[in-house]
């Protein structure tokens, strides 16, 4: 099963553009944690994200996109980064998250990635349709 561990650092919603982690010790311990994930063979991907003040939100109203530049005053929790891990169970994902050397200001949310078999029987065929079938339909 694939899980995303979402890192939610308090205060990141108001962080200035370009702010990066500067505490050497914390970066080192986080690197060690990432290595442990990799050595265990569970790590598929990870990324840190620049603060929302450098991002934008695109909302939709009656199908029309509207762009708002960051920061977003209404946002209480924002993402700081994520890991994608492949583990055997939700418990294993939680166990990995517990081992993260996070600070009091940080929360990790563990979320399972959707797989094909999670979809309903009505939706599945849309996802499973091969390109040749779509192409054939277009030709009709």
């Amino acid at each position: 099963m694939r899980f995303m561990m979402l890192m939610i650092p308090k205060g990141y919603e108001t962080a200035a553009p370009g702010s990066m982690p500067e505490d050497k010790g914390r970066v080192e311990s986080m690197m060690k944690y990432n290595e442990a994930l990799q050595r265990a063979g569970v790590l598929l991907a990870l990324d840190g994200l620049h603060p929302p003040s450098m991002g934008a939100r695109i909302s939709f109203s009656r199908g029309r996109p509207k762009v708002t530049d960051g920061p977003f005053p209404e946002a209480k929790e924002v993402l700081g980064g994520y890991w994608v891990i492949d583990v055997k169970s939700r418990d294993e994902a939680i166990e990995w998250a517990k081992r993260c050397p996070a600070s009091d200001e940080e929360t990790i949310e563990v979320r399972q990635v959707q797989e094909l078999e999670d979809w309903s029987d009505e939706i599945k065929p849309i996802l499973e349709e091969s390109s040749i079938e779509r192409w054939a339909k277009k030709g009709e």
């Binding site: 991907a45 797989e115 094909l116 599945k124 996802l127 499973e128 091969s130 390109s131 040749i132 779509r134």
Partner: peptide, 29 residues
């Protein structure tokens, strides 16, 4: 994995697979 079987369980050969269904994270790795 997700692209190799059709709705009725029939195998879909490589050239006919829906490439959007391929797992691009795994491919990148």
């Amino acid at each position: 994995f997700a692209a190799r079987v059709g709705p009725d369980g029939e195998p879909i050969l490589l050239p006919d697979q829906n490439r959007a269904r391929w797992d691009h994270l795994l491919i990148r790795r």
